[in-house]
Write a protein that binds this DNA or RNA. Structure first.
Length: 112
DNA sequence: ACCGTGACTGACG
DNA sequence: ACGTCAGCCACGG
């Protein structure tokens, strides 16, 4: 399987990676961008998540910014939906900040 | 084909 | 340690 297959649209490549994030783990926009070979496309990764709403298989709640802050929660219908989904997987969140972030971090560069 | 937009990031003061 | 600034890049109009 080639998640970074260049023949696929950038968004599709992003989704391919996000789908492989294990439950209870999280990663960052930048980490995904770097894995796809476009380290400076972190913003575009977030843009892709925005369009991923129609794709139920894409666990967008497992993608946060580099310090573990839930910067994308405003795009989750409610303002607590993202946090609740994370805590449901055993990831403690306090004031939009994932606790023990490095401990839950999942780097596609190392794991894939 | 050009321009504005954004769920980011690293550097700087 | 914390707020601010400026690059970056893919998408849609």
């Amino acid at each position: 399987m080639s998640p970074a297959a260049p023949e696929l649209d950038f968004f599709q490549r992003v989704y391919a990676v996000v789908r492989q994030i294990p439950p209870g783990r999280v990663t960052s926009y930048g980490a995904i961008a770097r894995y796809l070979g476009s380290a400076q496309s972190a913003r575009t990764v977030g843009y892709a998540m925005n369009a991923a709403h129609s794709l139920p298989e894409v666990p967008a709640h497992r993608v946060v910014n580099r310090v573990g802050l839930l910067t994308g929660k405003h795009h989750f219908g409610g303002f607590t939906a993202m946090q609740q989904q994370l805590e449901a997987e055993g990831i403690p969140v306090e004031d939009d900040q994932i606790q023990n972030f490095s401990q839950h971090f999942w780097d596609p560069m190392n794991e894939l």
